[in-house]
Each structure stands twice: as C-alpha cells, then as structure tokens.
Design a protein around this nucleic acid. Sequence first.
DNA 1: GACTCGTGGGT
DNA 2: TACCCAAGAGT
Length: 350
Amino acid sequence: MAAKLLAWYDREGRTLPWRIRPGAEETPDPYKVWLSEVMLQQTTVKAVLPRYGRFLGRWPRVEDLAAAPLGDVLAEWAGLGYYARARNLHACARVVAEEHCGEFPSTEAGLKKLPGIGDYTAAAIASIAFNEPATPVDGNIERVMARLFALKTPLPEAKPEIKAMAASLTPPDRPGDFAQALMDLGAQICTPKRPACGLCPIRPDCEGLAEGLAEVLPYKAEKAERPTRLGTAFLGVRADGAVLLRERPPKGLLGGMLEVPSTPWGPKDAAEPLAFAPLEADWRMTVGLVEHTFTHFHLKLQVYAAAVPEDATLSEAAEPERCRWVARRDLASAALPSVMRKVLRQGLGE
DNA sequence: GACTCGTGGGT
DNA sequence: TACCCAAGAGT
C-alpha cells in the first residue's frame, strides 16, 4: 500500500514552496517546515501560499522572528485567523533562539514541548524535516484512514484507532513523504465530497469503497449550533483621517489584535451602548449593521460613526491606555482582523 | 471529552 | 442560504 502511494506521490504530488521534491539533494529546513505547518493549521493551502512567502522574506531565520516585536508578527498574520497561532509562533521562535541555540529539537517529544506545537505538528516536523519515524494525523489522513479501513466509529472517538492504523502503514525509510502523500491524496483524490475514486492509486485496497461507504465516511459527532452575539462599535474619525483603534487583551478571542472600540458582545444589546463610547461626540448610526461569523458564534455589530475633534478626551470606559489613533495610510498594514476590516470598509466607505 | 479560537471558499 | 471544511492547539 505505502509503496503504491509513494509512487503516486513522486509522480503526482503537489509542488509547494515549503516542500522538497522527492529525490532532491536538498534537505528540508526545519524552520520552514515549522512555519508552513503552523500556517496550515486549519487553513487552506491557497490562503497560506501568499502569506508564507511574505513571512519568510521578512523573517528568513528563526532568530529574525524571535527578535521581532509581537505586534509586527500579529500584523503580518492579520486575516489568517486563529491568532493564538501567531502568538505561539513568536513565543516558540524565542524559545528555540534563546534556549536551543536556534536549532529545532529533532524528536517528536522534544518538539511537542514548544508552544503551538501539538500532536500533529510535532509528528509532521519530526517526520518531514528530520526523517524521524513519526506519524502525523490531520483531517485528510483521518478521512483517508476511515475510508481505507471502512471505519464506522465516529470522530473524534476514532482518533486513537486512526493514529494506530496510520502508524502501522508508515514506511520507516520515508515517513515524511508518506504523510505528505496521504495529505495530498486527501486533498486531491480522497476529498470530503465526491471523492475521485477512479483516480485513486490505492483503490484496490479501499474497504470503504468496496462497501459503498467511501463517500459518507468518516462519520462525525454532531456539532453544537452557533448562537448570535450582539454589540455596538464606535468608529471615531479625526479631521486628518486618523481612526481610533484599541488593542484587545493579550489572550482570548482576537487576542492582541486591534479593534474598533465597542461594547462587550453579548446575547443582547447593551442597555445603554453610548455609555461605552470611547469619547463624547455626535455618534450617528449611519454605518449600519456589520455581520460576521466566527467559529462558534455569529456577530451582529451595530456601527456608530462620528467626526471627532483633534483634542478630544478619551473616556475611562474605553480604557484609553489601550487606545491609539491610526493614520488612514497605516490601516492596511495594521494588526486588524477581518471582522474589523469589514467594519472599517463599511464605515469609511468603499 | 468538551470548549474556545478565524477566515474564506466550496457546495 | 446555510452549512461544511481546511496540514489543530490550548485549556
């Protein structure tokens, strides 16, 4: 099975900037493997491609990343989502630079001690960058294994079983290529919907296909429904065009990123939203409603706007020590998450 | 084990 | 439209 899959991978595998082509002389750079793996966590290859190049160009070595201010890293990450990844990436770079002389640990166990590196990423780096006999299991590999073995146990209950199956198939000589081959198979052939079984190199081995279940596996536990949260945001604009923004607390949702100041987001609107305004002004509801969907809730943000004088005093309710005026031309490169870019786009016109 | 934590694209 | 889903980690 592994041999057939590897032969397919050598022939049909994707060419990606962080990947060394099978058979090449070059040896993988653990820094690049790590960076790509963290960026790819729950994120599509398409979304990562342009960001990976920018990131690497700005911070070519782990020491460069370690020396950067966190705010710069968050700004570069803006729009990619799951911002704890960027915070952990930065923390991890500092640990590697300062405590490991700039060299990543080569074992799965050593890697897993680092911030932002969990089961999957530790096994991925160990196998891909260091040729260690580790078996990463991502969503693709879960799907491929569930189908290959016609596994009817639903996820996430099936995870230990799947890990054992994948480990039993991993060839000792090419663990990293095998993992990447499974991931490419999952991304290109063994897709979640309408898998291209006719093109699959391991079709004869697939018990799921034999049982007519390839398309419906893996089974999954039902997920909770998403509630809706409401809030009111205050877009203050100075005569020179600068916008009032605020840094969010360092952890939690959008931690460390910039936001348009707002009321807390709750199941109901604040009774007196204006009590949360960052300053006294003629707030008007001209912008309207901005809607955004996060992983586990929908947000409906009512946006007020006001022209603000140069000498306006920030109110204590807005926590002025976290506030700053940002020039219009600096917005593009600021640490603004997508939901806040949506607010600005709608509020500043376009 | 169950939550929290983003975003954009595909169906 | 309303889901589903993507090279998951931390608590």
